[in-house]
Design a binder for these strands. Sequence first.
DNA 1: CGAATTGAGTTTTTT
DNA 2: ACTCAATTCG
Length: 708
Amino acid sequence: MNREALLDGLNPQQRDALLHTDGALLVIAGAGSGKTRVITHKYAYLVREKRLSPSSILTVTFTNKAAEEMKGRIASLLSRDLKDCWIGTFHSQCMRILRREIQVLGYRPEFVVYDEDDQHSLIRHILKELKIYEALYRGVVSRINSLKASMVTPEEFLASGDGFGFDEKLAKVYVIYQDELRRCNALDFDDLILLTVRLFRDHPDVLRRYRERFSYILVDEFQDINSAQYELVKLLALGHRNISAVGDDDQSIYRFRGAEVANIYRFEEDFPDAKVIKLEQNYRSTQNILDVSGSVISRNPGRKAKQLWTERGRGEHVNFYWLPTEEEEAKYVAKTIKDIYLKGVYNYGDMAVLYRINLQSRAVEVALKREGVPYRVVGGVSFFERKEVKDIVSYLRLSLNQHDNVSLRRVINTPHRGIGSATLNKIEHVSRKNDLSLFEAIRRVCRTKASSQTVLEKLEAFLRLLSELSALKGRPAPEAIEYIVELTGYSEGLEDQRLQSLSELTASAEGMSVEEFLERVSLFTRLDEPVPEDAVSLMTIHAAKGLEFPVTFIIGLEEGVLPYFKSSDNEEEICEERRLFYVGLTRTKDLLYLTGARKRRVLSRRQRQEPSRFLSDIPKRCCQWIEKDPCGTVAGNGVDGKGRSSPRDEALYYAFPYKTGCRVRHPKWGIGVVRDCYGEGDDRKVYVNFPGVGVKRLALKFAQLERV
DNA sequence: CGAATTGAGTTTTTT
DNA sequence: ACTCAATTCG
């Protein structure tokens, strides 16, 4: 693709963003404003026109999925493979750098990455050792994580404390935690970022190398980066200052894990010469949806003002349904989904149900099942969080590193081999006293015969197992998994479903070595799991970020649910909840349904709920408010409820009964695939590709197309 | 050491 | 309501 083609179809602001390649650039990209398009085209432009090699453009995304998508789109723009490119999440890029460089920080390059679960068990273990009430671990984990996100070292935190109370204990836990990670040659998620920052700060020669290597830096979702990530970007960019930061402060929804919107404002201070471009033309939603979401988000103070607009028409009114119970709410959602589907305009795959917390999916799932509507739940307990999968992964880790204490604790008695808590305590004791890893401690116990004969035999058997596992280094992962299952007798007495996970695990490891597989697994998340056939998507609003759906339901619009009750006391958190609602609203292309329930089960009690405060931010003219009282009568107010075609008929008029990719039958040309649709009302046209005939442009009004 | 029972806490969101 | 973990008993 040449220069013209890359600029083609970009609006003036998008073009500016693409062409500004010298020095810092901040792109404030409103929802649905073609942000990804700008990034991918800019990348292609840098390669094509500025002759940069893909290996010299560092591109950071928020999720693995976003990275993959971006890679694919860029590859097709450039019509070439992107080998040796640097497109990925902060965590994966840091991992890649640390694999090469971490030795100067005193870790070995085969380090493993501990996920949340591993982190929890390690911290609980430390609390136990320190005789601190273990149930506090959640709070401790989150405090430590936020310290790490803002780059406060254990030593600094210790020094900053006043020497009493909980913080002092917390500092102690933090010190031990960090120490223990190092011993296990393990990093947690935050370490990946933190250590890379430290690497660059403390080793100017290394920093210089990477500054030279990356001559351009692109950062997506800039509003969601934490201070450590900001620091990392800054370190790399401060040499040449060739950086594009793209984000939307209104869509910052990860404060709870250390993201700070303020970073997007800091950028202009740290790069005072930065050009700032706002993308305000929206290519996704109808004007009505923009009005609704705009009036909601405008209540937040201190944001960068935006005026989103669209060339699409006004579109449909938003509907708010206030239903007696959560069951009725779910039923209403399921029925409406089915209705819409039966009208033939939208497929199930075009629709999504969004909610604040995963728990809310339950009722909707029940109702959808009852209606026979296919659905998929995004999130929930993911494949890689299943117990049996984590067990096998622990064995794999141990095969590479026998000093991985967290993995060892996990599997030492799984499956049962008669090594219980008494024995384990003894081993822990030996390990602490002699400053040994658990593995070494077991060896010492065996060598010095410091236990009963039966226990010794069991421990020796376990040691033999570990030494056999160490032969798995560099082997193909599927083979290693099967070997582990066989050697440990793991599958004995396992339920079918769990056996199933094991074979899925083996299948997913296809073509990778043990090392590669572990690397993939540790950064894999729920969002990355495959997309099935035509099904309604159910997910949290968080999970829906970056996605769009022609038809969107946002459920549970009640005080306590959205905004969530845990956030209710703090103004900044309410703002974040409002942004969350905004993100949900702006996922919608055509039809938006909001619902809430007057009564809901909250922690086993039926509770009376009030409509969400955010609803009152929506202008009356945009939203149709319909209440169903417990007797079943329906009352509407708000905009012209009577005397006009129902919203759904109107949708039929504006929307396309076919979408790109769907198959249709034409009386003359037979079956073809829809390539594109455009126009409004009676002027709607579709391009259809008929195999053997070619692409035909057809007027929807006249062509007698039939969906296949 | 392991199974069973009791009891507490729990439900935000994710790399 | 439900899960997960500590405690207790065999």
